[in-house]
Design a binder for these strands. Structure first.
Lengths: 304, 304
DNA sequence: TACCACCATATATCTTATATATGGCTCCTA
DNA sequence: TAGGAGCCATATATAAGATATATGGTGGTA
């Protein structure tokens, strides 16, 4: 019993006439007679009563008709759902986010905007470091990630640059430079630099060290933080200074002041990572919303 | 998109391997690959991700899988329902009943018994006179009737004798024979006979007149009752006497006493009527329950 | 009684699913 | 790193089965 047979059944029931039903179904009468007859035979029960003037439902036919209609309806819905998924209007998107990314206003803005535009799409967010994000992406635990380039597996992860976030210096409260708005890195050469393990964000890590080098100094490496945003408490504890993405100044942790960096200043690049070779419309859709949001929505609140 | 495609989709999703799924489906791998590929093409979206080691569901596939399972489930249920209907275990039975028939204990007993045996069957009852019952039967407003033979349309209604119900004389309270247990019809020759119109039950009507004739008298026809059970109030009103099926004495209408009839006594025959040429299992099932009940359950309560 | 409407049957045709054979890719392993 | 195994894709052939065409049969109707 195939979908076809349900359609035949329902159409004949609706017209009460095999000939007209065949017409409606775009076929001839004999095959329709034959098919419904075979259907009745396999079901072991008559659905229609043959009369001189057309056919009418038997009790069994009347009892089964709504069930057949339901099945046809669900099939139609299935196909519509599939088309919705194909157009990126429905579905589920699992998003991986690099550390501190949710603090950047344009990212939550983009996410809010996307869920307004595509209300049929549910989103789930996961925050982690770049290598873990790549791994989750490639093992299909996430569908798209916002990460700090470079990625370890460039062959399989396609990276789309998203924005270059300025960075700030974080100083413990009461530091001699507390009131200096903009600081040159060379003036911090002697302060221990609190930084995260390189493998958690090699791009940002290297950018920081390169900026020091360009400033003509080599930083004294202080205690290692467990993650990018994890440097802040260590700075607050007076263990050293730190260079952080601008968005982190929103953390409002007491005990730390943020300061602009005079050139040369490192940047914290953010990029979109997707599996290479895949272009589902849902992902493309989300990417374009993200890019648009980053263009029009990059202004940060002023420093205190 | 046919049922087949839903089954292919679900089976591949369950095995994660087109080759094994084909085996499970009793077919070869290439046609299955081809079918699922065509399905994806018509849906406009990939359901599976081809990998070196088998296939895995895409996001869309994962989202659609439960829907496909539901459709397969409903199809299975549909077929099971049809088989249930075919075996007479499910469905709906519309029963037509001749006047006063529900007062015969064996009839409600059979109905109760049937609904215990076949709990999947719903019943609806309709009470009327024999010609109207035949008409309802032939126009498919009822499926089976219990009527008083003969039927007007013997060519189309198949009649199965069910039982011969004894009859009683109904006398108005205070009648000279009130204390006589058994009365010979000849002693009532002068009393007006209250009777229903012949067309409402010609068999019973004729049996009554024949019994009078056999008793050697001709009844004086009194007022006509609107239906068989309708004679009782007229008797109670003192307009005459009446011959009624034994079961009617259960009406407990004040003003009337019931008395056995000495031979020759008429009988009120009851029969089952079904459409000639139809033998649905549900109807056959009900018929056998009825017949069994009438055999084992004919004792009537004593007369008061 | 002849006609009309409609379903059933018989045979032919054609679409389409499936089978067979083979190629190609990826991962695993010696 | 070369060879093999596992698995999916493609191409062609075959078979099944749905549909079309032609025609017969039946009951209702003018």
């Amino acid at each position: 019993m195939e979908i076809r047979h349900f359609r035949y059944f329902v159409t004949i029931a609706e017209t009460g006439n095999i000939t007209h039903a065949a017409e409606k179904l775009g076929m001839e009468q004999p095959p329709l007679s034959q098919q419904i007859r075979r259907l009745e035979h396999t079901l072991g029960i008559a659905l229609f009563r043959r009369q001189a003037r057309g056919v009418s439902l038997t009790e069994a036919g009347r009892a089964l008709l709504p069930h057949a209609r339901l099945i046809l309806d669900l099939r139609r819905q299935f196909i519509e759902d599939a088309h919705g998924l194909a157009r990126g209007e429905k579905g589920h998107l699992r998003i991986g986010l690099a550390g501190a990314v949710p603090l950047l206003p344009s990212i939550p803005f983009a996410i809010r905007q996307f869920s307004t535009i595509a209300p049929g799409v549910t989103l789930s967010l996961e925050e982690s470091n770049t290598p873990a994000l790549c791994e989750a992406l490639l093992s299909y635990r996430t569908d798209i990630t916002i990460l700090r380039p470079p990625v370890p597996d460039q062959a399989n992860v396609h990276v789309i640059p998203l924005l270059d976030e300025p960075t700030l210096i974080a100083l413990p409260k009461g530091h001699p430079f507390t009131d200096v708005a903009e600081i040159h890195l060379s003036r911090l050469a002697t302060e221990p630099l609190i930084i995260f393990p390189r493998e958690l964000g090699p791009g940002f890590f290297d950018a920081i060290l390169a900026a020091y080098r360009d400033a003509g100094v080599t930083p004294a490496l202080g205690q290692q933080a467990p993650q990018i945003a994890g440097t802040i408490p260590l700075v607050a504890a007076g263990l050293g200074v730190s260079i952080v993405p601008q968005s982190l100044h929103q953390l409002h942790t007491g005990g730390v002041t943020f300061h602009k960096i005079a050139r040369p200043a490192p940047h914290a690049a953010l990029a979109i990572g997707v599996r290479r070779g895949e272009q589902p419309p849902l992902i493309n859709h989300f990417i374009s919303v993200l890019q648009q949001a980053c263009k029009t929505h990059t202004e940060l609140p002023d420093l205190p």
